[in-house]
């Protein structure tokens, strides 16, 4: 334990409103949910000394709610709960696949989707799936709630559209309308090993085709940029086009403009880019 424990304080407020009030009193109060990220920093001596506000008991932040057009996954939902939910499995298979590969079971039992988003690791497993589903983040604050498209939420490495006093309240996923045509979804995490791994490259993709023509496409990546991203310019050159080997080749070239992988302790930029291209190729060729 590298942190000096007596200099850390944990508190909780009884109610959700009191929690939001407390958070708005100053930047030094950090919300604490499942702890699977913060406690690792704590042990390593990398967590700044201060006050932590336990939010894990707040029922306003808990549960998965089925609405007619949306699935509402509240922030404290753990990845185990996400993995085990029948609607997630049926209608949001990318998120189901992601939930299965988050850490391992003991982590999934504690790791929350809200914490995963707020921790903003570029290597997070859930976010690429959320990007493919055009997730909307509902943000709560003492004064006002608001909603942000998840693809606009991250601005830079660990810089996000979340102000002091604000708390991620829920993730909203739009449930698909019925569609005549072919829908394909693909999730692949290349980790350092097959379980309990941080990703080197994470790829989530969703495409809707009608007679070989791309009606809608989402390509999302983890560990390939300072935050989870969609390969938007690559999506644009595929949008509305008929898939062909030539088009796939163009897409792969374009992909390299959308992504900015780095060398780090786990992998190299060159490897990451090559694998990202290979996975895209595999996905698109599977749609031919």
């Amino acid at each position: 334990m590298k942190s000096y424990i007596p200099h850390f304080l944990m508190l909780k407020e009884k109610s959700f409103n009191q929690t939001l009030e407390k958070l708005s009193t100053g930047p030094g109060i950090i919300p604490f949910a499942g702890g699977t990220d913060l406690m690792v920093l704590f042990e390593a001596g990398k967590l700044a000394e201060g006050t932590f506000l336990d939010i894990s008991h707040l029922k306003e932040l808990a549960g998965i709610y089925e609405h007619k057009d949306f699935l509402e996954i509240r922030a404290l939902t753990t990845y185990s709960e996400i993995k085990n939910h029948p609607i997630v499995r049926r209608e949001f298979p990318l998120l189901y696949e992601a939930a299965k590969v988050v850490g391992a079971r003991a982590i999934q039992n504690r790791a929350t989707i809200g914490g995963n988003i707020a921790n903003a690791s570029p290597a997070a497993d859930g976010p690429p799936a959320l990007l493919c589903y055009d997730a909307i983040i509902e943000i709560a604050a003492a004064k006002k709630n608001r909603k942000v498209p998840y693809c606009d939420f991250h601005k830079n490495y660990k810089v996000m559209d979340l102000k002091m006093g604000e708390l991620i309240k829920a993730v909203w996923l739009r449930r698909s309308k019925s569609f005549t045509g072919v829908k394909k979804e693909f999730y692949h995490k290349v980790g350092t090993r097959k379980a309990q791994a941080i990703s080197k490259v994470c790829f989530a993709a969703k495409v809707q085709l009608s007679q070989g023509q791309v009606q809608e496409i989402r390509l999302a990546y983890g560990s390939m940029a300072p935050y989870p991203v969609r390969a938007k310019s690559t999506e644009r050159i595929l949008q509305g086009e008929k898939l062909s080997s030539n088009l796939i080749q163009l897409a792969i070239t374009q992909l390299q403009k959308d992504l900015s992988p780095i060398d780090d302790i786990r992998s190299t930029a060159k490897y990451r880019m090559q694998v990202a291209c290979n996975l895209l190729k595999q996905f698109l060729e599977g749609c031919l």
Binding site: M10, K12, F32, G35, T36, M39, V40, E43, F52, D54, S56, S80, R105, A106, I107, N109, R110
Partner: peptide, 18 residues
């Protein structure tokens, strides 16, 4: 690993407060 409210969790990641 321990069970907390019936779920398998890593006790090194849980502050006793929770």
């Amino acid at each position: 690993s321990i069970f907390m409210d019936g779920q398998l969790v890593n006790s090194c990641l849980i502050p006793v407060f929770q």
